[in-house]
């Protein structure tokens, strides 16, 4: 059974974009309500990653992503940022300016809450000091409508490492929940060996996954690799998001980790946002070049197509 089998989908394509409507299956709703004690209700949230504010290629993709999110037909409850919010600088004060600029742009998102974990460009040179000043803790958890969310920091040790202290915290954190609780982990680097010679791994990722292994419904959302990627290990589904600055190539197709060439004619190609719908935690990746169907316009277009 795949993740989409929980949903009854009706989709209408228009141009390169698509609107997915969903109704959670009643069986899964009652299951979550019964086991977690909280009556779940459908919601969605958005993952944005690798905005690299301050990078020479600029922030226009991030700004476009903000517009795209604000135009989504289904307004997300919150945004998860999975690291590399900023591009680091060793010039005194410059990195702090970039963090402020990031917050200015992110502040235009029409959502009540934003959650952040750092990437190595945010936190690896100073152990996360500047990140904490601007965004708070580098790891934490929260609950939302029956889903448990966990932010994991695998960058601020300087290496691709979570560390024994944080893993002990994780063990205590999840011990409060029954194994049926849906868990979403958001982090920067992959928690499995995707391509170690490109630094696409976390040294103690297996230790993290062992803590999560007893849980039936685990979703890992991460960034770092600047491309969409999906992987399953045990009960866990790992989803890498596109970046908002440039894309890396397919690691299975090339030996060289070189950014894909920038295309002036299509500056937002391979860049995108991700919307996740709960409780099924279905992932919908949206390239920034895609035309979104949203608001009144979207409904009218769907009606013309006879889909409503």
């Amino acid at each position: 059974m795949n993740r989409r089998s929980f949903l009854r989908l009706s989709a209408a394509s228009l141009g390169t974009g698509a609107l997915l409507q969903f109704t959670p299956a009643r069986a899964s709703l009652s299951h979550f309500a019964m086991r977690n004690g909280e009556a779940p209700s459908p919601f969605s949230f958005v993952q944005l990653s690798d905005t690299h504010v301050g990078h020479p290629l600029g922030t226009s993709a991030f700004e476009r992503a903000v517009d795209t999110v604000n135009a989504l037909h289904s307004r997300p409850d919150f945004i998860l940022f999975t690291g590399d919010l900023t591009h680091d600088s060793e010039e005194a004060g410059e990195h702090a300016k970039r963090m402020k600029r990031f917050k200015e742009i992110a502040g235009h998102l029409h959502v009540r809450k934003r959650f952040y974990v750092p990437g190595e460009h945010d936190a690896a040179l100073d152990g996360g000091t500047l990140f904490r000043e601007h965004f708070g803790d580098t790891h934490y958890s929260f609950d939302h409508r029956g889903v448990h969310f966990i932010g994991i920091d695998n960058v601020s040790e300087g290496k691709p490492l979570v560390g024994s202290e944080q893993i002990a915290w994780l063990r205590r954190d999840v011990a409060r929940f029954p194994h049926t609780t849906p868990i979403v982990v958001f982090t920067h680097r992959p928690l499995f060996d995707l391509r170690p010679d490109w630094e696409w791994f976390t040294t103690d990722g297996d230790d993290v996954m062992n803590v999560l292994a007893p849980y039936d419904n685990v979703t890992i959302l991460y960034g770092h690799i600047h491309r969409e990627h999906h992987h399953t290990s045990g009960h866990a589904r790992h989803h890498a998001a596109r970046s908002l600055i440039f894309a890396f190539p397919d690691p299975a197709a090339t030996e060289e980790k070189k950014p894909l060439p920038f295309d002036k004619e299509h500056p937002f190609r391979n860049l995108g946002i991700r919307q996740i719908t709960a409780p099924a935690l279905a992932v919908n990746d949206i390239e920034l070049t895609a035309r979104e169907i949203s608001g009144t316009e979207g409904i009218q277009q769907l009606r013309k197509g006879g889909s409503l």
Binding site: D88, E90, E120, L125, G158, K159, P160, D197, E199, T203
Partner: peptide, 8 residues
Amino acid sequence: AICDHYCG
């Protein structure tokens, strides 16, 4: 082999 301690 790579440097896996972020250095800039």
